[in-house]
């Protein structure tokens, strides 16, 4: 019994630095501006006008939609590309495989600050600046996808070979084995990939700022920087209201989906 008390105590203590900033963000978004930098845990008077201000100052609904649809397409696209490549690198033997894997892996090693200028030149020459294409294409096929490929490869490598043998005996080809046998089994790993990818796209900051220039094309992280007063000073409470609106729905979805997500992962793990 006392062990349990200890465990709970430890967990509660560890929780504080994880929870407090979010708590502060949510409550401060409802504080009057003069109270933001005070230490109070709750607003002295609750105000929701900041939330109206968010929508009045920016096409926030449109921006929400931009972020959402980009993240969904990127997530779906990445899952497809990563599953195919991950499977091939893990289960199929073909000449040049290792070299190609290293080539692909390079993407994992490059921070986006490094390649942003050449990439910008590229999309500029395609006439794709101030469109959402760079934010969709690069994550699906470029560097951000590599982590997903890596996770999928680690998953497929641990898959028992017997399953595939049996399917092959039944006359299924490679594509059939992948589609009918391996892919359905990889659901949990795909779930992990989906969460990683969605969050990555949702929080992308540098790229939208460089590529996008009109407010109705903006994505959420970029929109957060737009809530400023006449003198360019940030309107903290409005920014925090917007930040709250970008974080809370995702948090809710995570709470609802986490059982499948984590328990699914557990059956296979990202086992290596």
């Amino acid at each position: 019994m006392s062990r349990k008390v200890w465990l709970y105590g430890l967990l509660c203590l560890l929780c504080v630095p994880f929870v407090f900033p979010t708590w502060w963000m949510v409550t401060s978004s409802m504080k009057p501006i003069s109270e933001i930098f005070s230490e109070s845990l709750l607003p002295s008077e609750w105000t929701f006008s900041t939330y109206e201000t968010v929508f009045r100052m920016q096409p926030f609904g449109q921006q929400y939609w931009n972020s959402l649809y980009i993240a969904v397409i990127v997530t779906a696209g990445t899952m497809a590309v990563a599953a195919l490549a991950g499977y091939a690198f893990a289960r199929i033997r073909f000449p040049g495989q290792n070299v190609l894997f290293v080539v692909v892996l390079t993407g994992l090693l490059i921070p986006s600050e490094v390649t942003i200028v050449p990439l910008f030149q590229m999309f500029q020459s395609f006439g794709m600046t101030n469109t959402h294409w760079p934010l969709i294409i690069v994550p699906i096929f470029g560097a951000p996808c590599v982590l997903a490929i890596f996770i999928m490869r680690q998953f497929f490598i641990a898959l028992p070979p017997e399953l595939e043998e049996a399917a092959r005996m039944d006359g299924l080809g490679r594509a059939g084995i992948f589609y009918r046998i391996a892919l359905p089994l990889s659901r949990p790993a795909l779930g992990a990939v989906a969460i990683f990818t969605f969050l990555h796209s949702w929080n992308l900051y540098l790229e939208p700022i460089v590529y996008l220039s009109t407010p109705d094309m903006f994505t959420l992280p970029q929109a957060l920087t737009q809530f400023v007063d006449i003198y360019g000073g940030p309107m903290w409470n409005v920014q925090l209201a917007a930040a709250t609106m970008t974080a809370v729905p995702i948090l809710v979805v995570f709470v609802l989906a986490q059982r499948q997500f984590i328990e699914g992962l557990a059956h296979t793990g990202v086992k290596g």
Partner: peptide
């Protein structure tokens, strides 16, 4: 950002 746009030809 301005410099990146200039460098990128935009």
């Amino acid at each position: 950002t301005l410099t990146t746009q200039i460098a990128g030809g935009n």
